[in-house]
């Protein structure tokens, strides 16, 4: 009987160690990825890299930088995030304030947005590309913006919905009982979740700026700084992808440096999101 207890406690100990190791592996992978990119990319990072567009012979290791891609990505991500926010917030508001809570309509719409959230960007890219060919638009910044907007709408709808769900139902009822229309109540709800909206926007921006498969087919690539929406534009993830597949070490190094730039952008977004979220929590208390 006693040996049984010992054996069981030993099992408990082994299991605990295994769990701790798994936890360390999972969280460690994050630092490992960022560390690898930092270690490989830092030596190649220079002011020239981020302040200039590619010049002649850039792709065989000569002068220039990836400003075209940085700007392209920023334009693309900010326009699609803006559009997705303008479309997504009304949808969440509609589902929360205008539709009866808990109704079939509300639940099935939210389910569909959850499902849409999981659809890979390559599918969006493929269908958008086919439609663009069919209509006769070539790969362009505009094509990319539309595709990425569609991709980010479900993210906005989901995050805003989660925020709206934190509003006590009584707040809704109290405003209704002052004789408000639904729209006036919706405005109060928006006011209530205002700090959280920025978080949602940042999340969407992060997803938009990092996507490759969606822009690969729809946005094309260009060495020029983006000027018009109907022309192809470079994007940072694609620049990384293209440079990395080059056999020339100098160009590969630039891929690492570009990856580092993208990592920085993402980390800034994540940190801002985190700060906003914690500030919001303090505000509530």
């Amino acid at each position: 009987m006693r040996s049984n207890v010992k054996k069981r406690l030993l099992k408990e100990k082994i299991a605990k160690v295994a769990m701790q190791l798994s936890g360390i592996t999972i969280t460690g992978s994050l630092f490992f990825i960022i560390g690898t990119i930092l270690y490989k990319g830092l030596p190649y990072l220079s002011w020239e890299m981020i302040s200039q567009a590619p010049k002649g012979g850039f792709y065989i290791g000569k002068e220039g930088g990836i400003l075209n891609a940085i700007l392209g990505s920023l334009y693309l991500a900010s326009s699609s995030t803006l559009l997705a926010t303008l479309i997504g917030i009304p949808i969440s508001i509609f589902l929360h304030v205008y539709v009866k809570s808990g109704s079939f309509l509300e639940r099935s719409c939210k389910l569909l947005f959850d499902v849409l959230f999981g659809i890979p960007s390559i599918v969006y890219g493929a269908i958008a590309f086919s439609i663009m060919v069919w209509v006769g638009i070539r790969a362009s910044l505009l094509g990319g913006i539309i595709t990425i907007t569609l991709l980010t709408i479900p993210i906005v709808v989901r995050t805003i919905d989660e925020l709206l769900r934190t509003i006590p139902i009584d707040l809704k009822h109290v405003t209704f009982s002052l004789g408000t229309t639904r729209w006036e109540t919706a405005k109060i709800c928006l006011k209530y979740i205002k700090p959280g909206i920025f978080t949602a926007i940042l999340l969407a921006f992060g997803r938009a700026i990092g996507d490759v498969a969606g822009v690969l087919l729809t946005t094309g690539f260009s060495d020029n700084l983006p000027k018009y929406v109907d022309e192809p534009a470079a994007t940072l993830p694609l620049a990384i992808f293209f440079q990395l597949s080059s056999p020339i070490p100098e160009v590969q190094g630039r891929a690492y440096a570009s990856a580092l730039v993208l990592t920085f952008i993402i980390l800034i977004i994540v940190i801002c999101t985190h700060l906003l979220a914690s500030k919001q929590q303090k505000h509530k208390i």
Binding site: P168, D170, S177, L178, Y192
Partner: peptide, 12 residues
Amino acid sequence: MGLLSQKPFPLP
């Protein structure tokens, strides 16, 4: 009809 709810809900 004015409603006074269970908990106070000041508008933001």
